[in-house]
């Protein structure tokens, strides 16, 4: 059975419209991508879709009440909401520096959540 699936590649701002042709669930052709990242994205999207999650965690004793964070690498797409839920319970103490790990191994993914901004202590 032949199936064609369309994707908007999110790997860069170009947003290529990439088409994957599947024969019995196996990718036989990928078209529309301007670079190899497009093919990689679609392949992953069909087998193991992943996303970087950005959010915030609470800060105590800081110049701001929250600090921005991200998953240091992409995590399974289905875990996005669970990741944010786990972050709900996290509170870090100021000062916070970019790159500080605020939560290790989020959702058991092996990926850490790290701070993406600096919050000075007050």
């Amino acid at each position: 059975m032949t199936e064609v699936k369309e994707f908007t590649c999110i790997r860069c701002p170009l947003g290529c419209n990439v088409r994957a042709t599947l024969e019995d669930g196996k990718i036989t052709e990928i078209t529309g991508n301007t670079c190899p990242r497009g093919a990689d994205y679609v392949t992953k999207e069909l087998t193991d879709p992943r996303r970087i999650v950005t959010s915030l965690v609470k800060v105590s004793g800081g110049e701001l009440p929250v600090v921005s964070v991200k998953t240091a690498a992409d995590i399974p797409k289905g875990d996005m909401q669970r990741c944010v839920q786990e972050l709900k319970a996290v509170e870090v103490k100021a000062p916070v520096r970019i790159g500080d790990v605020v939560l290790a191994n989020v959702c058991g993914s092996g990926v850490d959540v790290v701070a993406t901004s600096n919050v000075a202590a007050v």
């Binding site: 994707f7 790997r11 701002p13 947003g15 996303r51």
Partner: peptide, 11 residues
Amino acid sequence: LKRNIAQCLND
């Protein structure tokens, strides 16, 4: 941007 429609709305 197209990728924002994909990852911010469609997701």
